[in-house]
């Protein structure tokens, strides 16, 4: 009968490192196979195409947040002339410098 191997402090370190690397590999495999994702994305794209959608339904709190790419420059004050922007989405969205396509008189956004 052989004597049990002496305890080495590196063994638990290797075990934990092995576990973490295995978890990282599992995550990468999950990315690679991404169960059902291709079909879901295709369905989403097909819906966008069929309905002519232009925007993501992320900022639904105010009317002018829902279709950001279609909103105009006046949108921040459209609830009233004295009303500054008050929704979190509006305060955290940068001004649309892409509009108007012709650019601003001060040359900003070009």
């Amino acid at each position: 009968m052989t004597a049990p191997a002496p305890f080495r402090a590196s063994t638990p370190v290797f075990r934990i490192a092995g576990g973490l690397v295995a978890a990282a590999i599992a995550a990468l495999v999950h990315v690679a196979i991404a169960p059902g994702e291709a079909a879901r994305l295709e369905g989403e794209r097909a819906l966008v195409e069929a309905l002519d959608l232009t925007d993501l339904a992320l900022f639904t709190e105010a009317r002018y947040g829902r279709h950001r790419s279609q909103a105009d420059l006046h949108s921040a004050f459209q609830d009233g002339p004295m009303l500054a922007e008050h929704f979190p989405a509006g305060s955290m969205v940068p001004p649309a410098r892409g509009f108007p396509p012709a650019g601003f008189a001060d040359g900003e956004g070009e």
């Binding site: 879901r40 369905g43 989403e44 966008v48 309905l51 993501l56 339904a57 639904t60 829902r66």
Partner: peptide, 10 residues
């Protein structure tokens, strides 16, 4: 479908 909620939720 739930999978398309990002564009169709509302």
């Amino acid at each position: 479908p739930l999978g398309s909620a990002l564009v169709s939720s509302d």
